[in-house]
């Protein structure tokens, strides 16, 4: 119990004293996960919308795959991204394994199916009469898609939250492709594992409180946007 109290006290101390290393870790986590989510959004929103609005052979299979991907274990993504980025791997020449860029890639892969899946569901929940009406009023397919996405923006923001929440809290991929390098690829979650391994439970608890606070603040901001309109 005193460990928990110590953790809360430590969290406050780290925040108040503005511990440089902790701030750097916080900043990296936020930057990497925001970038990973942003890339996922760029790829997944068009993909989700296309899947929702078109009908073709094998679509059902593809949708099932996306839905499965929503539960993609980060450690699996981490393993494959690591192998691809190895010096001996196909992208070895980039030399980005154990850099923040590698974590961004892995997290984008983790978030993409989540965003695609929720976008798909969100777009499909817009009544088809609305789409037909738009087309009837002379909208092009692209304009129609845009209007439908606008209509579905509330659940779409949920997709952003789910994607971001999923990647900032994952550990398996960050650890494998980032390597938990001090001052370079140490994120909140990998630092937590390290401090627990060192027996510094109070610092680990402090970091988890910071992580929860960060996720809360981001979701709060997104919710404010969502509920406003």
């Amino acid at each position: 119990m005193d460990v928990l109290v110590g953790g809360v006290v430590e969290a406050l101390r780290l925040l108040v004293t503005g511990d440089a290393e902790v701030w750097a870790i916080l900043r990296l986590s936020l930057l990497v996960s925001a970038s990973g989510t942003a890339i996922a959004l760029l790829l997944a929103i068009p993909a989700g919308a296309a899947l929702a609005l078109t009908r073709f052979r094998g679509r059902q299979l593809l949708v099932s795959l996306v839905n499965t991907g929503m539960g993609l274990p980060p450690v699996v993504v981490g393993l494959f991204v690591t192998i691809l980025l190895w010096r001996s791997g196909p992208f070895g020449a980039w030399e980005i394994l154990y850099t923040p860029a590698a974590i961004v890639i892995a997290q984008a892969v983790i978030a993409a199916p989540i965003v695609t899946g929720i976008t798909l569901a969100a777009v499909q929940s817009v009544p088809s009469a609305f789409r037909l009406q738009l087309l009837g009023l002379g909208a092009s397919r692209l304009q129609m898609t845009w209007m439908v996405l606008r209509e579905a923006r509330l659940p779409m923001l949920a997709a952003v939250m789910a994607g971001f929440g999923g990647v900032i809290s994952e550990i398996g991929a960050s650890m494998m492709v980032g390597g938990n390098i001090k001052g370079s690829t140490r994120t909140l979650t990998t630092a937590m594992v390290l401090e627990t391994g060192k027996g510094n439970f109070d610092i680990a608890i402090a970091l988890s409180i910071l992580l929860l606070t960060l996720v809360f603040l981001v979701n709060w901001a997104l919710t404010a946007v969502q509920q406003r309109g």
Binding site: S35, T99, V104, K198
Partner: peptide
């Protein structure tokens, strides 16, 4: 902006020949 952020990340990685990868045990780190 997000894309820009991402684009700048890899450039912060050190130039190849100046980076040493040390693989080691957990005990030295812990």
């Amino acid at each position: 902006l997000a894309v820009l952020v991402v684009a700048t990340l890899p450039s912060r990685a050190q130039t190849p020949g100046r980076t040493v990868i040390l693989s080691t045990t957990t005990s030295t780190q812990d």
